[in-house]
Design a protein around this nucleic acid. Sequence first.
RNA 1: GUGGGCGUAGCUCAGUUGGUUAGAGCGCCAGGUUGUGGCCCUGGAGGUCGUGGGUUCAAAUCCCAUCGCUCACCCCA
Length: 431
Amino acid sequence: MQVKAPRGTYDLLPGQIERWQWLIAQAREVFTQYGYGEIITPIFEHAELIERGVGETTDIVSKQMYTFSDKSGRRLTLRPEWTAPVVRAYLEHNLHARPQPVKLYYIGPSFRYERPQAGRYRQFHQLGAEAIGSADPALDAEMIAMPIELYRRLGLSRFVILLNSIGCPVCRPAYRQALRAALAPHLEELCPVCRTRYDLNPLRILDCKSEKCHELSAGVPASREFLCRECADHFAQVQAILEAFGLEYRLDDRLVRGLDYYTKTVFEVTSPDLGSQSSLLGGGRYDGLVEECGGPPTPGVGFAAGMERAMSVMEEQGLNPPVKGGPDVFVVTAGGSRAGEYGVRLRGLALLNELRRAGLTAETDYMNRSLKAQLKAAGRLSSRFALIIGSEEMAKNTVQIKDMQQGTQEELPLDSDLIGWIQQRIGGSKQ
RNA sequence: GUGGGCGUAGCUCAGUUGGUUAGAGCGCCAGGUUGUGGCCCUGGAGGUCGUGGGUUCAAAUCCCAUCGCUCACCCCA
């Protein structure tokens, strides 16, 4: 048997998961403040939804999907991203009947079959948001400002906002033609992939990393020069709002994004503290997607942020959640759970149970350790108090309570208000 | 799918031109106190040297293959 997590997946254990939970907690708080409600969709969807939603010619659909048939022969796909599933849910549950726009956020795993590397996994986690039903440029800006605010609260700094507009079905054909015209003389010099892109999706030639293609496409016109009146107007407003928010961004002619559904605004936030996969989040507007999925013409905009990427920067910069202390009390039973002292153990366990029911964080030993070793364990857990009970205490109906920080110890009657005594000393925050 | 780097204890790593029972630090467990943690001292457990084959009197060490990890390309979160 293979005792190893599958390639491109990993386990999160206590010690690292606190940071993960912190990220999620902060995200929930920020998204809620911005008026987004959480949505959870299935981890798998009908393959067709993803294929049509994301686009047949994209890398995701053409080579990165986990697609399988279930026992009834349905073709299903582990979701490679959340936008298409969220749009599906929007249509399925008639969310267009609710006040528009519908603002949703999500947190959870996505799957893409790729060779793993720094910041890239086969099961990775995204947190993101979608605002469906409005074409307001304020939402485009919100999709950038909101995650940036999340990063700010987590303590991340040093990111670069890349922005572009790739037009709409009205103006893009003209741009495509211009692009083809500019590249036509060099068609033979393009890489094989780009030669097929030339016909299918010439915009993608712009973000080809091959040196030759990069050179050849250097002088071509930018999509922004071909925007129709509406798109140009929209983009100007997005920029104005970002500026009003005090967010600095960089216009990037080559930012076209690899998913077919984008229209108008596209953006990416990158971090210099990441490896080669430097993108913290990406997103854009998708005014044609709802219709493509069988709904009425409905605008939408969203972003998806990589949780592993954020975690990586947080780790890099030593950004940790506020430290939580150890247990309030560690119950030490002298003589351990040895048969002869079982009465002691039983009394100790009853006390432990009582402490926990009172809302205190309480621990004990489960390894039949010596008194000394139990105290050591209590110290290792940074327990605030050690409550010690042995045969002497049993006889006197008392317990020893030791302050592990001060090193002081006193004896209290068993029928005194032990819990009150402890609560008073750990501060009133616990009930 | 392609290329580079790396696989020795739970973790981080030593291991000479091939040479005897493969080591250290940390961690873990126990003892140094008949019932008291942290520091210190002592001891202990723990390793198919990734796996398979080859060369050799002898392989952790050299060769081949294979698997895994990792970084990069493509692309993206």
